[in-house]
């Protein structure tokens, strides 16, 4: 969709920022604006904000902890509160939890090792602006690549997430020890999605699969519907 005004934030140590930008452009037809973490202000009238994967600040503290405090995140929080869709993938998901935009935490993988492989996911919520393009109960295959993807929250939070339909994606196999095999969650309003799998690595046949494409298409379509 022409005029889809997305921003991809680059933190020092982000390394999937280009991949995210390429995916957004391929699907929406418009190149996203690249935003530097030190910029306190985001461009105005954004339709979509993406926090990409990588190792922000080396993740030498807790993964995502430093980035969550960088100047741009104040603007990201404000935009999220206004209802702008925010997608955090991998390190971006870690940043969102550290910033308090999503509940829970991503701990070291249960097996202690970094894991890179394509995993099977169940799509649990097809009502959100990120997932409306998937069929209810669909199984999709999307790559993961992380060291700290072991999702943890207390039982009350987990029950609430489940009860409110905020588990967007669930692993269909044992991957990293996540509570209830959670791979991706939504915020209460449904406009913030954090997920460990990399949808931007599954948008072309040459990637080995295109199951990530529907996520971006959903977001573009949601905006088209909202402005129509």
């Amino acid at each position: 969709m022409a005029g889809f005004r997305a921003a991809v934030v680059t933190f020092p140590g982000s390394n999937c920022d280009r991949d995210m930008a390429v995916a957004l452009e391929k699907v929406s037809g418009t190149a996203p604006i690249r935003v530097w973490h030190g910029d306190a202000d985001l461009p105005d009238r954004l339709d979509f904000i993406a926090l990409p994967g990588g190792f922000s600040y080396g993740d030498y503290l807790r993964s995502g902890a430093m980035a969550a405090n960088s100047p741009v995140m104040r603007s990201v929080k404000a935009a999220a509160e206004r209802g702008v869709p925010v997608l955090g993938v991998c390190n971006g998901f870690q940043v969102l939890t550290e910033a308090g935009l999503l509940p829970g935490a991503l701990m070291r993988n249960a097996g202690q090792n970094f894991i890179c492989r394509t995993v099977a996911l169940g799509v649990e919520n097809t009502q959100s602006l990120f997932t409306s393009g998937y069929e209810n109960g669909a199984t999709v295959h999307i790559p993961v690549a992380h060291h700290d993807g072991n999702y943890f929250a207390d039982d009350a939070t987990l029950d609430r997430l489940e009860g409110e339909g905020r588990v967007a994606f669930r692993y269909l196999e044992a991957v990293n020890g996540s509570q209830r095999q959670i791979a991706g969650i939504l915020n209460e309003a449904g406009n913030v999605l954090g997920m460990m799998p990399h949808p931007e690595r599954a948008i072309e046949q040459d990637h080995g699969g295109t199951d990530g494409r529907a996520l971006f298409e959903s977001a573009v379509r949601a905006l088209a519907g909202a402005t129509a």
Binding site: N15, C16, R18, A23, N113, F114, C116, A145, R201
Partner: peptide, 8 residues
Amino acid sequence: QYDSQVGA
């Protein structure tokens, strides 16, 4: 244990 996909 190696990220073989980054760069897409």
